[in-house]
Design a protein around this nucleic acid. Sequence first.
DNA 1: CCTACCGATCGGTAGG
DNA 2: CCTACCGATCGGTAGG
Lengths: 217, 217
Amino acid sequence: MANPTGLAGRRSAAERKPRKERWAELIETATQVFYERGYEAASLQEIANRIGMLKGSLYYYIQSKEDLLFEVVNEVHQKGLAVVTALAQGPSPSPLERLHRVIRGHVEHTCHNLVPTAVFLHELSALPEDRRRQVLGDKHSYQGVFRSLIEEAKAAGEVREDVDPKLAALSILGSANWVYRWYRPDGEFSAQQIASHLAETAIRGIASEAGLASCTR
Amino acid sequence: MANPTGLAGRRSAAERKPRKERWAELIETATQVFYERGYEAASLQEIANRIGMLKGSLYYYIQSKEDLLFEVVNEVHQKGLAVVTALAQGPSPSPLERLHRVIRGHVEHTCHNLVPTAVFLHELSALPEDRRRQVLGDKHSYQGVFRSLIEEAKAAGEVREDVDPKLAALSILGSANWVYRWYRPDGEFSAQQIASHLAETAIRGIASEAGLASCTR
DNA sequence: CCTACCGATCGGTAGG
DNA sequence: CCTACCGATCGGTAGG
């Protein structure tokens, strides 16, 4: 480390960065500290230290510590949801193929945005209920994307009759989300490898014989 | 509530309970408070209040707050592991059938012990590394049970050749563990329903044609 | 953004 | 287990 004290050192006013730039730096640092310590255990003091600012000065940018968590969590949720909905709407021979693509995309996005995703999945519960709902939206948007695809596939006869779409959606989302707990960029499995495996087994788990036959992978 | 202040009220020395009884009450209360607030946000003050004791008096039973988390987390982990290993070793026509049973048992155990399980899965990371390892053991015991069964099934030709047992184990554990995030005792799905679904889809996800045929459910 | 604070609460302890 | 504490740190603020 260039700075063994962990303090970035305060700058003179002349070095002040543009507000937008500072804000981005602040969010990035907060994400990292929340990831390492957990939201509750993370202190504004440490965040301030890392960006070379006094703790009180953070309030030039925020109204409360909670604002930081909200921002971090909201940002990654929007991004992830965008990825997943885009893939779900794309063209494809069959709903089951689209589901396959959505799972892959979701898992790869998780792996490539491990730190903010982990904060989202682990610390969302630290937000008060109203702000949590503000992030998630009134609908179960994420779950809804998966569920709709499964319903569609079921209507097309590609999914077994005894499969409950909501239960299946929760199950698939679970195996996918859990990835943040064990994936490591330098680990033995690549993001693509994990994404492919999860998508493949999830599809096989719910597909009817007809559905399985229609997937030519 | 019988006591609207949230304080249980202190007892006279004559009402002092046996140490073992008090200890059990303490652990149970700590589990609940950790569940509701998260470990970091939970205060010893609140735990003490709920059992009608002064905060300082807790140190008659513990050396640190961390002791409480360790105890809670260790207890439920041992119990869960016992359930799963017992089921894995039981008699059965095929390894895949045993895996089916293990997944069901694991999920039902999770649902029936939702609060301590949630604390285990969510707050384990709040323990320092050495005590975390002390809980989990040096081996990945949980993951190992699932992985071994999958390896066995693969050797018996019941699992597809292209399935990586470790990846499959992590995937199945993920969908099962995630249940603590959405299962509610009064929700629309029963523990048995969820357990059956997860087991069924997980098996179908990895089974070979021969393996699928050998499972007559 | 810094200076200079504050009240509240936290985990924990000595001594009985 | 209670009495009676303590130092540290926390999130947050007034004023510039």
